[in-house]
Amino acid sequence: MSLNFESLVAEYYRPLYQFAFSLTQVEAEACDLTQQTFYIWATKGHQLRDETKVKSWLFTTLHREFLETRRRQTRFPQYELSQVEAELPTLSPARVNQLDSPQVLQSLAQVDQVYQAPVALFYLEDYSYKEIAEILDVPMGTVKSRIARGIAQLHKLLAPPSPTGQPSKDSRG
């Protein structure tokens, strides 16, 4: 593999960190995950034969490392989804514009953990669902349902509180 380590870092450290931060919400953890990913690349990257897969390899590795650290901390349930709730909350662009990036990520952190990585990849990268499925090592149908479910939860969390104190179902502004 003729890829230069420095150019690889220059190209991918930012999106990898953003993905890591969207998963951990903690800067130090995100830095560690990003560094660990490149360290693994430095030691095992030569095993990758297809250079076009470098980016997805890095994201896959980072996600695995994240899962590994979480597995050590606590085992979270892996359950499958049925379908997205019938009534999807609608989120207005104006409402989203009121929020800053940390607030969005704080809301993502409240989404069920199993949905967080698919949703983060959905927003951060222009991957196809097939590629996201490969990165997360789950079937494509599962990825789609997790993203849909995760977006629905995120929308609910981002929607402005209703007068009763609960997030509104329709926050169209």
Partner: peptide, 17 residues
């Protein structure tokens, strides 16, 4: 509305410093 909101959300994610 959804597409516009998603676009803004995507931008928020990419604002992660």
């Amino acid at each position: 509305q959804e597409q516009a909101a998603q676009k803004v959300l995507r931008a928020k994610f990419k604002e992660i410093g």
